[in-house]
C-alpha cells in the first residue's frame, strides 16, 4: 500500500472550494463519491504559460488537487496542440512508473493557451494492494468463459476501484465465442475480474436479449 498523507486527502475539499472561488462562473461536475471534480468548463484561466503544455502543467500544479491529482501520481503528457491551437493537453497518470488506466486528465486550452476546460477521471487518492498475481493467472481469469483464437495482451498498471486505486492487469483478447474484443481488468493482488468491456463498436444495435 502506498501511504497517502492524510493532509493530502483533506486538502481536496479545500482545493475544490478554491477552484470554485476563483472561477465562480464555471460549470462543474463532481464525483458521485463526493469531493473531486471530474469536469469543469465555462471558465478561462490565463497566465499559466505561453505554450499549451506549460499552461496545462501550471494550471494542474495550482488546481490539480481539485481534480484528484494527488501526490504519488506522475503526469506524462500524451498529446498537446501546437502553440496557438485550440485543443486538448492530455496527461496520463502514472504511479510507480505504471499507467493508471482510464484515468487521463485532459486540459483544454484556447488559442491563447488559456485553460478553458478540464475533464478528469474520478480517481481516488488512496492506493491499495500489490502486484502479486502473475500475468498468466490474470490472463486465465480474464479469459474465463471466452473462446479465443489468439494470444491475449496483458499490461500491468493501476485502476480506480471504489475508493481506492488497485493494482491491475489489463487483458485484451479477441473472442470467437461470444464474439467480441474484450478488455478485462483483473485485480493484480486477488486475481478477481473487476471490469470487462467489449471494445467492438458496431454500426447497429448489438445483441439484445429477446423477451
Amino acid at each position: 500500500m502506498i501511504p497517502i498523507l492524510p493532509l493530502a486527502a483533506a486538502l481536496i475539499p479545500a482545493a475544490v472550494a478554491d477552484f470554485k472561488a476563483d472561477f465562480p462562473g464555471a460549470s462543474v461536475a463532481e464525483s458521485p463519491a463526493g469531493g473531486r471534480l471530474t469536469h469543469a468548463s465555462g471558465f478561462e484561466a490565463r497566465g499559466f504559460g505561453d505554450a499549451p503544455e506549460a499552461a496545462a502543467r501550471g494550471f494542474i500544479a495550482r488546481y490539480g488537487a481539485a481534480f484528484g491529482v494527488g501526490p504519488g501520481q506522475e503526469l506524462v503528457v500524451r498529446g498537446s496542440p501546437p502553440k496557438g491551437g485550440v485543443g486538448a493537453v492530455r496527461f496520463e497518470r502514472r504511479i510507480e512508473a505504471l499507467p493508471v488506466f482510464d484515468a487521463d486528465v485532459v486540459v483544454g486550452v484556447d488559442a491563447r493557451s488559456s485553460i478553458i476546460l478540464v475533464n478528469a477521471a474520478d480517481v481516488p487518492l488512496e492506493v491499495e494492494g500489490r502486484h502479486r498475481a502473475s500475468r498468466s493467472a490474470a490472463v486465465r481469469a480474464a479469459m474465463a468463459g471466452l473462446e479465443t483464437s489468439g494470444a491475449p495482451r496483458a499490461q500491468r498498471g493501476w485502476r480506480a476501484s471504489g475508493r481506492t486505486i488497485r493494482p491491475v492487469w489489463r487483458v485484451d483478447s479477441i473472442a470467437t465465442r461470444p464474439s467480441g474484443a474484450f478488455r478485462s481488468y483483473v485485480d493484480a493482488e486477488t486475481g478477481k475480474v473487476l471490469l470487462r468491456t467489449d471494445l467492438r463498436a458496431s454500426k447497429s444495435r448489438g445483441p439484445v436479449p429477446q423477451r
Binding site: R90, D102, A103, D104, V105, V106, G108, A111, I116
Partner: peptide, 25 residues
C-alpha cells in the same frame, strides 16, 4: 478530442465540453 481519455464521459460533461469547444473555436 477534449472528452476522450478520462474514463466515462457522460451526457452532462460531454455537452458542456461541446459548448467549451464552441467557445474556444
Amino acid at each position: 478530442q477534449l472528452a476522450a481519455g478520462p474514463a466515462a464521459p457522460t451526457f452532462n460533461t460531454y455537452w458542456q465540453t461541446f459548448k467549451a469547444a464552441a467557445a474556444a473555436l
